[in-house]
Each structure stands twice: as C-alpha cells, then as structure tokens.
Simulated scan of single mutants.
Amino acid sequence: MANALPLVALLVLAGSAALASATTFTVGDSQGWTTGVNYNSWASSKSFAVGDTLVFNYETKAHTVTEVTKSGYDTCSEANKLSDDDSGSTTVTLATPGTHYFICNIPGHCSSGMKFAITVSATRSGGTGTSAGAPRVPAMASVVVAAAAGAAFIKLALL
C-alpha cells in the first residue's frame, strides 16, 4: 500500500493536466446569445478542442440553443436537431472532434444571423481560447490532500 501514494499522485496530476487545458467560452462574450451579434466573427477568433465548454446566456424562452446537423444549419431548420434548450443558461461540453452547428430555432432568429459553426479539434494545439480569460483549472489541492489523507488513513488502518 505504501507504493500506492505515488501512483495516486501521478493519476491526480495527469487528470489535472487534461482538465487544465480545457477552456470555457461565453458565446457572444458580454453580449450573450441574442439577435444582432455576428457569431461567425465571434467563433472565427477562437480555437476549440474536445473538453472545452460553451456557455450560452440568454433570456429564458426568448431564444433556444439548438445543435443541428449541417443541413439544419444551412436551412435554419431544427428538423434533425441533436439537442435543444431554452432555459436561459445552456452549457455545452464539446465531447467530439469535428464541426458542430448551433442555431436559435425561434422563427427568424437563425436567418437573421443567430447561428454559428465551429470546428472542434481532438486536442488543443498552441494557445488556449480567449473568450472567458484563462483556461479552467480545477481546484486540485483538495483532491491531492484527500488522496494523501486517504493513503495515510489506509496506512494507519494496516498498522
């Protein structure tokens, strides 16, 4: 059991390194998810990777966050939607690489520009996103302390 502590510490560090590279993006920055914003311009200045999070802030029921297929994006149609929410605060974790398409399915909103497409990489290349400031870094100190305390407890229990 004494050899378990270095392994636990290594696993915690590896996990925190992966989480530290994820970035949270607030869609539309301070303007949020609403009409009158050029979301393609917003998205084009960012680099997205698997594990990143998109946060959509908007008025409840006044808009939707609808992830659609390419054809749904091109035609502003929710017919083949992948997900849909109108809660006013939607968080989407980018779990797969490839192109992801988002629209608002309130009539007229998508066709007036309330849509964007992003390409998500399997891993982050180069820098991080800039929308929400620094990358998310979890509070790993408590995990490390808990792991160390747990290892100490196991060691004491074995004595």
Score class of each variant (00 low, 15 high):
1 M>S: 15
2 A>L: 15
3 N>L: 15
3 N>S: 15
5 L>E: 08
7 L>A: 14
10 L>K: 08
10 L>W: 07
11 L>A: 13
14 A>I: 13
15 G>Q: 09
16 S>C: 10
17 A>D: 08
18 A>P: 00
19 L>C: 08
19 L>N: 09
20 A>V: 03
21 S>V: 12
24 T>G: 01
25 F>K: 03
26 T>S: 11
28 G>E: 02
28 G>A: 09
28 G>N: 05
29 D>K: 13
31 Q>C: 05
31 Q>E: 12
31 Q>A: 15
32 G>V: 01
33 W>P: 00
33 W>V: 00
34 T>P: 01
35 T>W: 01
36 G>Y: 00
37 V>S: 02
37 V>A: 04
38 N>L: 03
40 N>L: 05
40 N>E: 13
42 W>R: 03
43 A>R: 10
44 S>M: 11
46 K>G: 04
46 K>A: 11
49 A>S: 12
50 V>K: 07
51 G>H: 05
52 D>N: 03
53 T>Y: 02
53 T>K: 13
53 T>G: 02
54 L>V: 00
54 L>A: 00
55 V>N: 08
58 Y>K: 06
60 T>E: 14
61 K>F: 14
61 K>W: 13
62 A>C: 09
66 T>P: 00
66 T>L: 02
67 E>D: 04
67 E>M: 10
68 V>F: 02
71 S>M: 10
73 Y>S: 08
73 Y>F: 15
74 D>N: 15
75 T>V: 04
77 S>P: 08
78 E>T: 06
78 E>P: 06
81 K>E: 05
81 K>M: 05
83 S>L: 09
83 S>A: 14
84 D>I: 04
85 D>P: 00
86 D>Q: 10
86 D>E: 11
86 D>R: 05
87 S>F: 08
87 S>H: 09
89 S>R: 15
90 T>K: 05
93 T>R: 13
93 T>Y: 02
94 L>K: 00
94 L>D: 00
95 A>I: 06
96 T>S: 14
98 G>R: 08
98 G>E: 09
99 T>H: 07
99 T>E: 13
100 H>K: 13
100 H>L: 12
101 Y>W: 11
101 Y>A: 09
103 I>Q: 07
105 N>G: 05
108 G>W: 10
108 G>L: 14
109 H>F: 14
109 H>G: 04
109 H>Y: 14
110 C>H: 04
111 S>P: 02
112 S>D: 15
112 S>Y: 10
113 G>A: 12
113 G>T: 04
114 M>E: 15
115 K>M: 11
118 I>R: 03
119 T>M: 06
119 T>D: 13
120 V>P: 06
120 V>Y: 10
121 S>W: 03
121 S>D: 14
122 A>Y: 06
124 R>W: 08
124 R>V: 10
125 S>A: 15
127 G>Q: 12
127 G>F: 07
128 T>Y: 12
128 T>L: 05
129 G>L: 05
130 T>C: 04
132 A>K: 01
133 G>D: 07
133 G>W: 06
134 A>L: 12
136 R>K: 05
136 R>A: 02
136 R>V: 03
138 P>W: 09
139 A>M: 09
141 A>C: 05
143 V>K: 00
144 V>M: 12
147 A>V: 02
148 A>E: 00
148 A>M: 07
148 A>Q: 02
150 G>N: 07
151 A>M: 03
152 A>L: 09
153 F>I: 11
156 L>F: 10
158 L>W: 06
159 L>Y: 09
159 L>K: 14
